[in-house]
């Protein structure tokens, strides 16, 4: 792939956005820990990804997706997280990407499952500092600018809008019925986490659907599951659990589609154009 082509890929959009965010957050917190954590996580993820590529004897080794996963992990784990926990979480993410697969595609969002498992296994603390979780609220528009650019590039507006709409509607219902901690959910750092998660993790092309209807259902499942978990238990795992539930829905839809006789399937606009989900991270 030529440089000009690579620049236009969804992965490059995401990579540029999260590197910019990481730089801004590091500058604003006046700490180099974020850059160091990013290097550790991305480095570990790339090494593990390359190892798997060598084991699988892949001709093309391009670990840019692994770098994105590693950076996402580093931006969500607390700045004070021990380096080996960051490395292990990044490694877990990439291992899941290669082992938990269906038709050679990852079933679960690698960063989400790594971060989800890091809580019970490593007792990891998450702060979403890379989503400006420790900074004033006026940094949020920066999240939305990059988030919309990435969502537009991967063509996932229906999914992201469904997720945000249901999440905020359920939080409003929680506030109305005085259930759960709606106050926190709508303010930093939780609103930062929701926006960053919706635009940068939920939209991962290989682990989310391409069809509009499936995108909407995916977003609704992720939002309802996450909001129910948050309302009942609080904590910080709710977004990841929501996404993993959406990933399971996506897997089921893939299996149903694969089992359907070809003669009964009607040609759709989806089949005419190259689906975005083929652009593997």
């Amino acid at each position: 792939m030529k440089m000009a082509q690579w620049i236009k890929t969804p992965k490059t959009y995401i990579l540029i956005a999260i590197v910019v965010y990481l730089s801004i957050a590091s500058w604003a917190t006046r700490s180099m820990a974020g850059i160091e954590n990013g290097g550790i996580a991305a480095g570990t993820a790339i090494v593990v990804d390359v190892l798997f590529a060598l084991i699988k004897k892949r001709k093309r080794i391009m670990p840019d997706g692994a770098a994105i996963t590693g950076l996402l992990v580093a931006m969500i784990l607390s700045l004070n997280t021990a380096w080996f926990i960051i490395a292990c979480t990044a490694a877990l993410s990439i291992i899941s990407k290669h082992l938990l697969v269906y038709k050679k595609k990852a079933i679960f969002n690698p960063a989400a499952i790594g971060l989800f498992l890091s809580i019970p296994i490593f007792h990891a603390e998450q702060s979403w500092w890379g989503a400006f979780g420790d900074l004033p609220g006026w940094y949020i528009p920066l999240l939305l600018i990059g988030g919309y650019a990435v969502t537009n590039r991967v063509n996932k507006y229906p999914q992201v809008f469904a997720f945000f709409l249901i999440t905020f509607a359920m939080t409003l219902a929680m506030a109305y019925f005085h259930k759960g901690d709606a106050f926190d959910a709508l303010r930093p750092p939780f609103i930062n986490a929701t926006l960053f998660f919706g635009c940068f993790m939920l939209t991962d092309p290989p682990t989310s659907p391409a069809k509009i209807r499936d995108q909407v259902v995916f977003g609704v499942i992720a939002a309802i599951t996450g909001s129910v978990i948050y309302g009942l238990y609080g904590g910080l795992m709710y977004l990841f659990i929501g996404l993993l539930a959406g990933n399971v829905f996506h897997l089921l839809m893939q299996r149903l589609t694969a089992n359907r006789p070809k003669s009964s399937s009607k040609p759709s606009s989806q089949q005419k154009s190259k689906p975005i989900s083929t652009l593997q991270r």
């Binding site: 409003l172 709606a182 606009s269 689906p275």
Partner: peptide
């Protein structure tokens, strides 16, 4: 898949912002 039109992006964003603001 066709890209969502800007008009719909603005409308959906406004609806989401309204629900968020209400919350």
């Amino acid at each position: 898949m066709a890209k969502m039109k800007k008009k719909w992006v603005v409308l959906c964003s406004t609806a989401i912002a309204a629900v968020y603001t209400a919350g």
